[in-house]
Structures are given as structure tokens and as C-alpha cells.
Nucleic acid binder design. Structure first.
Lengths: 194, 194
DNA sequence: TTCATTCTGTACCAATCAGTACAAAATTTG
DNA sequence: CAAATTTTGTACTGATTGGTACAGAATGAA
């Protein structure tokens, strides 16, 4: 296998690009800005990303979601009380000091931007969010089975409720409510589950 | 007052522009497309909108919200049971046949796009959404006072919950859940209020 | 050390972006 | 009618967009 060695790792540059897309969105993230963040030139980029900016965006979303989902699954699996873990997971959203404060949810943002523009990408994003919902459903079902939570509602309904809570809070928090109100709102919604 | 008469009504062209911004977002809505929808040329546009595209965007949001809020206030005032009216208002979101299906909430979309980009516009949008929340709070407080709903939670908390429900559903619906599940999710959240 | 292969950086591209300049058109006033 | 005023349509601007072409750099194999 001859040839000049490549100077970058694909997963690494996708991760860098994802940060730019997360903050700016698809349209507003310029190719120049993305390449600068990735630390590679146009020659290399268009050789390895034949689909250009769109391919990079989709891979950014895929990788980002994949990391989030697997980290979440892992921490839930290791947790003594998965439902309590889920609560802290949501309550982190009310931390105004968080670095990602104004950025919201990368997937939610992408869904907003792509829903009316690109059906293929919309479906892709929807699938990723449904995976997140599935994690919620599983935790709820298990918690129900173990009598950790008491409810007469189905795990599916409650799971979709948590996904919707996630989607909602990631919008609402950007109105810059004070942290306490946001936390109270989240707690109220979590108490609805069990 | 002499001079060539203008061929357009300001409120009317803003309304047309709002439709384009609502569907495409700020960045993706091109000046050409906006002007075409508004039915006026560049000469007229830049004469009356000195602030260009950004001014048009802000006025679109203001006008859109103003219309929504006053219509909502009016229908609530005329309603026999304001809380029941609010329920139908939310349940309309689950109608997949709705024309505005994929567009979500204009203000929510704008908040997503502007939150990390333009603090002035973000604040403006936040204020509009807080006005919507205020309407929810008022209806809830009145309904509590009249014993239409029973709850030990404050109207403020429940109002913020409804705003967050609004924000959330407008994202979640774009995952293309089936109408029945979406309606069940909304009903579940409304039942939490009273 | 030469060759084939692979990757990189730069120069370049047409298309599109929001916005400006300005002459002509359409009106009221005198 | 002519003059003053206001709006309109078009031609044009420089900047930026995502993307391409390609020469040359860096490697392994022969």
C-alpha cells in the first residue's frame, strides 16, 4: 500500500466538524470554517468526503448521536437506579453554567432546519431521536417491572413523553429562563412519569 | 403629498415574507425568493426596509406573533370554557393533515436559529414566547379560581409547562409520529395540568 | 533510484449572496 | 402644462458560497 500518508483521522475531523454544525447549523456553517476547525485542506476533504458538506453533516449527526446514545446506554447499565440516573440526565439541562447552554440539542436543531428542506436527512435524524426514545422506554419499563416507579401509563407513552420533554427543554432553555424555574419545570415533568 | 404611489401594503408584504421565513428559516430564505413572494422589486424593498433582510425577519416574527397572540386572546375571551379551548388548541398540533405540518412553530424555529448567533433577536423571540406563556398562565389561574381544574401546582409552573409542551411538540411532531400517538402524548401532558 | 500510488495545498471556478446606484415612471401641486 | 416629489425596475457591485483542477509532495515497492 503505497502513497502519501494522510494527516488526519476521519472520526476526529468529523467530531470537530460536528461542533461547528451544532453551534451554527447546516447552512450557516461555511466550508471554510469547517475545514479550519477540522484542520485539513480542501484537497483532502473533497477526496475523502465525495458528498461534500452534506455528507459531512450527516456523518457528524450520526457520530454525535452514536456517541451520546452509547454513553447513555453504558451509564444506565452501570447505574444502580437507572431511573434516578435519567433524572440527573434531564436536570443537567437546567444548569445555566453549562458550556452547551445556547446550543440546545444537535439533533433537535438539525430536525428544525431539515424538516421542510430534505426528507432523507429528516428521516435520518428522526431515527436517531427514536433511538433516544427507545432508551427512555427501556428504562421506564424496567423501572416499572421492578416497582421503582408506579404508574398506570404504558412505558411507550412515558418514553415519548420524556423524548418530548428533551426536545422541549432544549428549546425553552434558550429563552433564558432562570435555572431554578427550569429545574422546577423539569422535575414536574419527571414526577409525571413516576 | 406628491410622488409615485406605492404598489404594496407593508403589513401584507411582511405577512408574505413571514411565510417564506417560517418554512425556510432566516439564512436559507434568499432575498430573491422573499421579494418574489412579496411581489415587489429591490428598489422598493430597500427603500422601505432600510435594515434589509434582518429587519424584514424581525418584523415578520413580530407580526406573526402579534397575530397569533391576539387571535388566541380573542378566542379565549369568547370561549365558555377557556381551558377546554386551550386543549383543542394543543390537540390541533396532532393533526397530520395540517398544512403547517412540517414547519413547526415560527418562533421556536427562529429561536433555534438565532440563539447562538444574534443575542438581540434571541431576546426578541424569547419575549414573544413569554407572551404566549403568559396567556397560558392566565387561563390556568382563572380556571383554578373557578374550580374548573384542580391542582396543587402554581399557575406559573403549569403555564411554563404548557409553553414547553408547545415547544416540544413542534419539534417532536416533525419526527412524523403517527397522529394517534402524538394526540395521546399531548393529552397526557394536558391531563397533568388539571 | 525510479516508478506508481496516494494525499495535500493552492489557484481557480461559476453561481449566488445581500445590497447599492440610478434613471425612468408615476403621481400631486402650482 | 412644468416642476417637485416619491416609488419602481434594472443593471450592477464586491464578497462569499460550495466545489473542482491539478501540480507537487510524500510515501512503499521494485
Amino acid at each position: 500500500m503505497a502513497g502519501r500518508p494522510k494527516i488526519f483521522d476521519e472520526q476526529e475531523v468529523i467530531s470537530k466538524a460536528a461542533q461547528v454544525f451544532w453551534e451554527k447549523g447546516y447552512e450557516a456553517a461555511s466550508a471554510e470554517e469547517l475545514l479550519k476547525a477540522m484542520g485539513i485542506g480542501k484537497g483532502s476533504f473533497y477526496l475523502f468526503f465525495k458528498g461534500g458538506k452534506k455528507e459531512l453533516y450527516e456523518k457528524s449527526l450520526q457520530q454525535f448521536a452514536s456517541n451520546l446514545l452509547s454513553r447513555l446506554r453504558k451509564e444506565i447499565a452501570e447505574s444502580q437506579n437507572p431511573f434516578e440516573y435519567l433524572k440527573t440526565f434531564f436536570l443537567e439541562l437546567s444548569d445555566g453554567a453549562n458550556v452547551h447552554k445556547a446550543k440546545g440539542c444537535f439533533m433537535g436543531n438539525a430536525l428544525v432546519e431539515m424538516a421542510a428542506k430534505d426528507e432523507y436527512t429528516r428521516k435520518m435524524i428522526a431515527k436517531l431521536l427514536f433511538e433516544l426514545e427507545e432508551i427512555f422506554v427501556d428504562v421506564i419499563q424496567t423501572s416499572k417491572d421492578k416497582n421503582v416507579i408506579k404508574t398506570d401509563k404504558s412505558a411507550e407513552l412515558l418514553g415519548s413523553h420524556l423524548l418530548n420533554l428533551w426536545n422541549g427543554i432544549n428549546i425553552t432553555k434558550r429563552m433564558n429562563m432562570n435555572d431554578a424555574s427550569l429545574a422546577a419545570l423539569i422535575k414536574f415533568n419527571l414526577d409525571m412519569v413516576g
